[in-house]
Each structure stands twice: as structure tokens, then as C-alpha cells.
Simulated scan of single mutants.
Amino acid sequence: MMRFDPFREIEELSQRMDRVFGATTNTPARFAPNVDIHEDDQGLEIGLDLPGVDPANIQVEAENNTLTVQAERKYDRSEGRTAHRVERAYGTFSRTFSVPAKYDLSKLEATYTNGTLSLRLPRSEASLKRTIEVKAVTNVSKPAIEAAATNQA
């Protein structure tokens, strides 16, 4: 038994119409890669799936507790080549994350390995757990208060 997916049918129809009419829109398509966010004692790690994206086409910006990732996966539309099926997503991508103040955006590290962009945000120094030493103070001398006797006549 074959499962019917109306959205797949609509998508394929849209792709066929684009091919027939030349798809002359100037607006690039958008894609939304999967994102994983993990937190541990050291900080926050965000992983984005960006297979096939040239690292030169990835831009990461951090400002005012906001982290923005932009990327573009280009589609090669060669002349004389007919696309029978295009299922991979192409185009531009932009995603913004609100980052709590307990993470230090100035120490953001970004690496791209095997199609995965990894962003590492360490905890800020102010948010790290610290043990404060309590100092015992002994022989505290209280200041003497001298009162001068005055005779009023």
C-alpha cells in the first residue's frame, strides 16, 4: 500500500510549474536546517546541519545577547541540464537565537566539520559558580568614645 502525501504532491507540482514557466523569481528560496542546542557546566553548544554549504558562505554575528547565523547553499543551474527531481533545499538561510546573559558572546567559537556548524558559547565569568572564602576577624577593637564633661553655669 502506498501512502499519499498531499504536501509532496503540491511541492512536486510547484517544481514542475517552475520548470515549465522558467522560475524567473529574483527571490532566492529559503531552507531551514535542523538545529540542536545543548547546555553543560561549561556553556552552550548550538549545532546546525549545513551539508553542502561552502564555509565561505556562512556568516555568524553576535551582538546584544543575540546570535545570528546566515548561510547560502547555491544550486547549480547549468544550461542544457534537466532537473527531474530536486529534493534537497537550496537558497539562503538566516536564524537568530536569543542568548541569555550568562553566556559570553565575546568568546564565541565557530567550527564547521562534515557539514555541521558548531557554535560554542562559554559561560560568562560572572555566572560561574565560585566558593568565597570567609575570613575570621579576631581582636576587633572598638573605637573609644570620649565624652568631655562640660560645666554649664
Rank of each mutant, 00 (worst) to 15 (best):
K102Q: 13
A29G: 09
P33K: 07
F31W: 07
N151R: 12
N26P: 01
R95H: 10
G47M: 10
E133D: 14
G43R: 03
D76C: 04
N139Q: 13
R77T: 08
K107C: 05
T96I: 11
L67A: 07
I10M: 14
L128N: 11
R120Q: 13
P6R: 14
P6E: 12
K142M: 10
L44S: 05
G22E: 05
R120S: 13
H84C: 04
G22T: 03
V20L: 15
E11I: 12
N26D: 14
E61Q: 15
E63Q: 15
I145Y: 08
P28W: 07
T150P: 02
T131L: 13
K142E: 12
A62F: 03
L44D: 06
L119M: 08
Y112I: 02
G91D: 05
T25W: 06
T116F: 06
T66G: 03
R88F: 08
K107I: 00
P33M: 07
A110Q: 10
E79I: 04
V86H: 02
D36C: 05
R130K: 14
D104F: 03
R30L: 14
L50F: 00
K107H: 09
L121C: 05
S118E: 09
F93I: 01
E12S: 15
L121I: 04
S118K: 14
A23S: 11
T131I: 14
Q152L: 15
A149Y: 10
A71C: 00
A89V: 02
A101F: 08
T25R: 09
D104S: 10
A147F: 13
E87R: 13
G91Q: 00
Q152I: 15
R3K: 14
A62M: 00
I37C: 04
E63N: 12
G91H: 04
T92A: 12
R16W: 10
N57S: 11
A101I: 09
L67F: 04
A148G: 11
K102R: 14
Q42G: 07
I46D: 01
N65V: 00
E45A: 10
E39I: 11
T138H: 06
H38N: 12
S94L: 06
T111D: 13
P33A: 08
E11L: 14
T113D: 13
Y112T: 04
P100E: 05
I132E: 15
T113Q: 14
I58T: 06
K102Y: 00
Y75P: 02
A126L: 11
T131H: 13
S106M: 03
E79L: 08
L67Y: 04
G52V: 05
G47E: 12
I46E: 02
M17N: 12
A149L: 15
A71W: 01
V86A: 12
T66C: 05
V60D: 07
K74A: 08
V20S: 05
T82D: 06
I145R: 11
Q59I: 09
D54F: 03
G47C: 02
P55T: 00
A62L: 01
S94P: 04
N151I: 15
V137L: 07
V53G: 05
G43Q: 00
D76R: 10
E45S: 12
L105R: 04
T66R: 15
T68S: 09
